[in-house]
Structures are given as C-alpha cells and as structure tokens.
Amino acid sequence: METQAIIDKLREKFAAEIVGSDLETFDPWVEITPGSVPQVAQFLRDDPQLRFDLLHCVTGVDYFEPDEKKAAKVDWEPHVEVIYHLSSMAQRHRLVLKVTLPRWKDDTPGQLPEVPTVSHLWNTANWHEREVFDLSGVRFVGHPDPRRMLCPEDWVGHPLRKDYEMPTEYHGIRAR
C-alpha cells in the first residue's frame, strides 16, 4: 500500500487526531496527538489492509537547544518527539508515527511528559518504551513495568535530554 493511501485511510478514521504529515521526506511520517496513540496504533495493527505487525523501534528525540545563541536560530519550539517506526510484513509497507510532547508536563521542570503506552499492542514497545523513559525522559502511561532500562535504578536524570548534566559522582565513583 502506498503511504498516501495509508494516510488517507487514517484520516478517514482519525481526522481529528492527525496533526500533520510529510510524505516527501526520506521516511514518510504522520504525526498524531498523544492521547490518540493507542487507538491509532490499534487500528494500524489490526486493520486487515494495514496490518502493521512489526514495530521496529520507539525513539525519543529531545528538541531543545541549551545554547541561547543557537537557540535563537532554530525554527522549532522546544519539545520532545516520540517516533514509532512501523512496518507490515504481510503488506510490505512502512510508516513512521510521530507524537510531539512538551518537554515537561505542565511546564514544570522535573514533571515528565506523558504518552499512553503501546506495549499491549506490540511487545517490542515494552523494552523500547522503558529505554525511551530511561534515556529521553518520557513517561508511558499504562506501561506494565515502568522501570529504567539501561541506567541503574537510582540514576538521576535522563541522559539523552539535551540539557542533561552528567553527575559528578555516583555512589562514591567519580563520574567526570
């Protein structure tokens, strides 16, 4: 199925939830509202014409420029993006799903942004969401096992945030 057709099909069902899309770039993507992720994902997975059975990857990207000089030049507002790479083995097509989140929930630093989990749809998401939570600081609501994945349990901060500061010490081990 062509990407355009996929997006048309999506629009048909979730007209309100689709925020934007780009089909001209390398990997055509569709952006949806955070709240609609489980419904859209469920539809993408279960619709017989779409059948996105394989979730490759969940990625968190932090758009934030700590350097004020550079920050003035960028053309985006600070935000966090969660990207889902999907493909269908049966139908042989692929799609990139994007969700834009605020960097902090309610603009209070320390409050992680939230997005519903899709780990009940694809088990791949289970560990990947944990990793995104761990490294990029996105809370996946409804995740069955919301622990850190790669960093120790008591690690402070989320390393892939652009404003992350490496701690100087961890349990008596000099870290810098």
């Binding site: 990625t59 790479h85 560990w127």
Partner: peptide, 26 residues
C-alpha cells in the same frame, strides 16, 4: 536499525541505534 537526524551541522542531532539483540533478548 540506525536512525540519524540531521540539523545542518556535522554532528547529528540525534543518532539512534535499534539493536537487534535488544529485541531478541526481550
């Protein structure tokens, strides 16, 4: 899987590695 997000500089804005063993281990 590798993902690269370019922002016009030499350094990628984001470099992502989707590891096969990571999923296989899960």
């Amino acid at each position: 899987g590798f993902m690269v997000i370019g922002d016009g500089t030499a350094k990628p804005w984001r470099a992502r590695a989707r590891s096969s063993s990571f999923c296989n281990l899960s």
